[in-house]
Design a protein around this nucleic acid. Structure first.
Lengths: 111, 111
DNA sequence: ATATATACATAAAATTCTTATGCATGCAAA
DNA sequence: TTTGCATGCATAAGAATTTTATGTATATAT
């Protein structure tokens, strides 16, 4: 499986980043995109994804648009203006954290 | 403050890695070392640290040795053999996760 | 006398996942 | 034709790991 668990706190940033690249996506599509991009390394579970999407929507970072395709429901999410700004700051935050981790885990390289 | 929050799941790896470099350390020392290495970016709170140390000990990854210095208690922790192995695998796991994140956040670079 | 640093600890609450389950449609295979 | 898999949503219970708050105690500096 090689299915690494999420480091808690990164899922939101992943969702926002994907939406910043694809304009609009629906939940199932996000799970498949993550799976493809990571070659199966990372599986976003529905139990984590849908509550996250709902929260992002309730915070005003995402807009929803319901569509019916092949007689199946789809909920397309897209970034609001606020969501776009938040994406930038979340990405900066994550990159900062990764740099901080470098300082801890690769002490030889921090000079 | 610039005090980034921990991405849940990384604290254990940080503790193990520090212990792999310093032979033995006590709790308070770990908080100070992290603060210094990250230039104040990361503050390990006691409420997170001590329970983590206790858990690592109960799992047999750390050994404890109590000492009294300047009339104050110190609990020195050091890696067991099992802990040393776990450190390696935790670090690999984290690096794998970081690589996976790269694929998601820097899609241009994954080809 | 008061605040800060050192040094441990735990409990309650919050956050964010995993796991399990449920509903429904469409299609392919047995 | 029914069984399984993929598509597509959802929520609830539980687990894990953190934050925040609080407590104890000694030493040192103001």
């Amino acid at each position: 499986m090689a299915n690494s668990k999420l480091y808690k706190g990164s899922l939101t940033t992943i969702i926002l980043k994907l939406l910043s690249e694809h304009n609009k996506m629906y939940g199932y599509e996000i799970t498949q995109k993550v799976k493809a991009l990571t070659k199966g390394e990372l599986q976003i579970t529905e139990g984590a994804l849908y509550p996250s999407l709902h929260k992002l929507e309730s915070e005003g970072l995402l807009d929803v648009e319901v569509a019916k395709v092949d007689n199946r429901l789809r909920k397309y999410y897209k970034l609001t203006e606020k969501g776009t700004k938040e994406t930038v700051s979340k990405l900066e935050e994550l990159e900062q954290y990764l740099a901080t981790l470098q300082a801890l885990l690769n002490p030889k390289l921090s000079y």
